[in-house]
Design a protein around this nucleic acid. Structure first.
Length: 431
RNA sequence: UCCUCGGUAGCUCAAUGGUAGAGCAACCGGCUGUUAACCGGUUGGUUGGUGGUUCGAGUCCGCCCCGAGGAGCCA
């Protein structure tokens, strides 16, 4: 196969003639010199064509180019401080693949609604380029971390006969005449694979039919969910710390340019390393009360409470031992305090809120069996889950890391809708 | 589901109840180092829909549709 050149490698090809294949993002012309801003998915590069060098025919073809026209540009890579990115291509030839029709997204400002309607095109722009390349790096880093620790990636089903967590609204569908639901978490199935393989994780979409309408919620979001046999609450707090640190570090190393595009304050990210502060839910409630919040012990934190708490720390904070009523049925009870569970949430700093939720799972058959009945869950559908407590039950624990919230925090962007290529939101399923 | 705000040119916005405008984009022309380039010109409108008040409605009122921000719930 022929050699392919990519803009991200331009620095390695200084003074050599290469061909880049991409799209025109913007163009400036000064009569006898044209500046073409070209992107190829790996980066952005300025290409300079002067009439004397390329000849009249190529120059006139370049003048007719429109925004987002596709083209192959051949030229010599030069270092030049005047070029955005420090390198530019001194053009010798242009091969126009297509002169694009009038492009709806102009270099000027646009509203969110318009941009979301054109999401399939919006992802071409530099800010989205940066965010989505960071998302990919985040996924890779998470997998690399878990793989290096001996975890097996074992996927869990999307179509399920009943709810994982009774309370949340599920999308309903039909499975050859039977009622079925779209998964909102792989966790229960993870517990089964963990009993078979020890350390496992799944990564996939979670679907929740909640009419959520906030910058922290999507209808369809992705989680990476590890589950570990013979592990307790402290074990997973440690792994969460190490995993989040490894992921942040990897983004700093491999996506420095993207963080620069986003103007992210990387010092805040460099500060992320173990140990993370750990406080109990009860201590968190005291902090909130001292801060003047009107909050009663027992319920889960809302957006405002999470913001107050996370802004008090420079690093992500682990809040553990939530009350029974604030957590799902499968959480293990704290043997030292019957009112709380062996659960833990990680709140990202700078007001980003919960990015990880997890805990130790109920081990005892009769306790779990009672809970299933108390929650009025269809017992037949959970017999397999109870089996895990009949045949060699062990203490085990796991957590789920929300990819979009994590990416939003790392990128320093306000709304998670930009952290996934095609967000599914209330009132918005297209494109 | 609830609360708040909004819908005017392709986009972002302006317009005391009295002739519907600007910048950008597009198109034409100029410019050999531009950085959201710049300069001159041209084109571009069923003011979300519907009913009402009024001599007169983009503007005021009712209903509906759509969107944004936030809440609840959660990752």
């Amino acid at each position: 196969m022929r050699t392919r050149y990519y803009i991200e490698d331009a620095a390695r090809h200084v003074d050599r003639e290469i061909t880049i294949e991409g799209w025109l993002t913007n163009m400036r012309s000064s009569g006898k010199i044209i500046f073409l801003q070209v992107r190829d998915g790996t980066g952005f590069m300025q290409c300079v064509a002067s009439k004397g060098d390329v000849g009249d025919e190529t120059f006139e073809a370049a003048e007719k180019l429109t925004q987002e026209s596709s083209l192959r540009v051949t030229g010599t890579v030069r270092e030049d401080a005047r070029a955005p990115g420090g390198h530019e291509l001194s053009v010798s030839a242009i091969d126009v693949v297509q002169v694009a029709e009038e492009y709806p997204i102009t270099p000027k400002e646009h509203g969110t609604s318009f941009l979301m309607d054109h999401r399939h095109l919006w992802i071409r722009s530099s800010r989205q380029f940066a965010v989505l390349r960071i998302r990919s790096a985040v996924m890779t880093a998470a997998r690399n971390f878990l793989d290096s620790r001996g975890f097996l990636e074992l996927d869990t089903p999307i179509l399920t006969p009943s709810a994982c967590e009774g309370t949340t609204t599920l999308f309903e569908t039909e499975y050859f005449g039977e009622r079925a639901y779209l998964s909102q978490s792989g966790q229960l199935y993870n517990e089964a694979t963990a009993m078979a393989f020890g350390r496992v994780y799944c990564c996939g979409p979670s679907l929740r039919a909640e009419k959520a309408k906030t910058r922290r919620h999507l209808i369809e979001f992705w989680q990476i969910e590890p589950e570990i046999a013979y592990a307790d609450l402290n074990d997973i707090m440690e792994i969460e710390e190490e995993m989040v640190t490894a992921m942040v570090r990897s983004v700093l190393e491999t996506r420095a340019n993207e963080l620069r595009i986003l103007e992210r304050d990387v010092d805040r990210l460099r500060a992320v390393e173990p140990p993370f502060p750990r406080i109990t839910y009860t201590e968190a409630v005291e902090i909130l009360k001292k801060a003047g919040a009107d909050f009663e012990w027992g319920s889960d934190f809302g957006a405002e409470e999470e913001t107050v708490l996370s802004e008090r720390f420079q690093k992500p904070v682990l809040v553990h031992r939530y009350p029974r009523e604030a957590k799902p049925f499968y959480m293990e009870d704290d043997p030292d305090d019957a009112d709380v569970t062996l659960s833990v949430d990680m709140l990202a700093p700078e007001g980003y809120g919960e990015i990880v939720g997890g805990g130790q799972r109920l081990k005892d058959l009769s306790t779990l069996s009672t809970r299933v009945d108390e929650e009025k869950m269809p017992r037949d559908d959970y017999e397999w889950y109870l089996d895990l407590r009949r045949y060699g039950t062990v203490p085990h624990a796991g957590f789920g890391l929300g990819i979009e919230r994590f990416v939003a925090w790392v990128c320093g962007i306000r709304h998670i809708r930009e952290t996934i290529p095609f967000p599914r939101m209330l009132n918005r399923m297209r494109p």
